[in-house]
Design a protein around this nucleic acid. Structure first.
Lengths: 139, 139
DNA sequence: AATGCAAATGAGAATTAGTCGCAACAAATG
DNA sequence: CATTTGTTGCGACTAATTCTCATTTGCATT
C-alpha cells in the first residue's frame, strides 16, 4: 500500500555521500522492499545481485543512511534491528506475534497524549516508540 | 516511591518452582531494587552475597520468572534487557536520553486508544510497548 | 535423618547481532 | 586518466544471551 519511498540518490550525493556500487544496490533493495527487512535479509537480497557484497557493508550502510535520516531503525521484540525507508509520514507498528507481520498505523490522538505526558513530567520528546504486539481475532 | 513488589516465594513454590539458593538470592535482589537492573547488574549484586553464583543462572532465572509473570523484561533502546518485578499496575516508560534515567507513567487514555486501533485492524493486543525518549526541558 | 532422583547449577563453549582494523580498491574531482 | 580520500571485503573481535554437560541440590519419601 505504501510503496515505500526510496531515499533519493541525489539527496545523498548532495550530502557528500559517495554513491558506491554496494550503496546503490542497498538503496534499490530498500526501495523495492514492501516489508521491514533486517540486515541479514538485506544482505541476502543483495548477494543475489552482486556476489561480492559483504554483510559488514550492509551494517555500515544502514548506519550511514540512518544518520542521514534516510531510513528508520526498529527493534521489534528482541530480534535483530529492522529497517524501512524514512520520509513517509510518521507511523507506529502493530506486530503480529504469530507471523511476525508488521502493520503500520498512525494516531494523532496518541501522539498528542504523549506530548502532554512528557510535558507534565518536564520533558521534551526526542523520539518515541509505540508497538502493539497482537494476534488476529479468531486465531 | 513504588518500592517494587517482590514476586512471592510462596506463589512460585505453589507453581512447582524449586526454591534454590540462587533463586532466592535473585528474588531478594529484585525485591530490593529501586531501579531496572540488567542481567549483569543483577549478577554483580548477587556475587557480593554469594561468590558461587553464575551469570547463566541469572539469565535462566530471569526467563523463568518472566514466564511465570513474576517480572517484566524491557529492552530500552539497544542495550541489554532490563528487568523489574511485575505485579504493580501496568505502566509505560519515559527514558531520559541524557542520563538514562527511567520514569514510569500511565495513561488510561492511551491504553484505550491502543485497544481501539488494534480492534480496527482486526487484532487483539497481547502486549505493547510505549517508550518516550526525552530530554529535560531547559537542558 | 538418610536416600533417590529429577531439576538446577556453574563453567565454559557456542551463537547471534553487530562492530572494528586494515590492506586493496574505486568514486569523485580536476 | 591520475590523484586522493572515502569505501569495501575480510576476518578478528565484542557484547548479550543461550546451550551443553558433568556435578550438585532441593525436596518428597522412607
Amino acid at each position: 500500500m505504501t510503496g515505500s519511498i526510496a531515499p533519493s540518490e541525489k539527496a545523498l550525493r548532495r550530502a557528500g555521500i559517495r554513491l558506491t556500487k554496494p550503496r546503490k544496490l542497498i538503496l534499490r533493495i530498500l526501495a523495492e522492499a514492501e516489508d521491514h527487512p533486517d540486515a541479514t535479509e538485506i544482505f541476502e537480497r543483495a548477494v543475489k545481485m552482486d556476489k561480492r557484497i559483504s554483510l559488514a557493508t550492509v551494517y555500515r550502510t544502514m548506519k550511514l543512511l540512518e544518520d542521514h535520516g534516510a531510513i528508520e531503525r526498529h527493534a521489534f521484540g528482541d530480534g535483530p534491528a529492522r529497517f524501512e525507508p524514512a520520509g513517509g509520514a510518521h507511523h507506529d507498528h502493530l506486530i503480529d506475534v504469530d507471523t511476525g507481520d508488521v502493520i503500520e498505523f498512525t494516531s494523532a490522538r496518541i501522539e498528542e497524549l504523549q506530548e502532554a505526558i512528557a510535558e507534565e513530567l518536564g520533558y521534551e520528546i526526542v523520539h518515541h516508540r509505540l508497538e502493539l504486539y497482537g494476534r488476529k481475532r479468531g486465531s
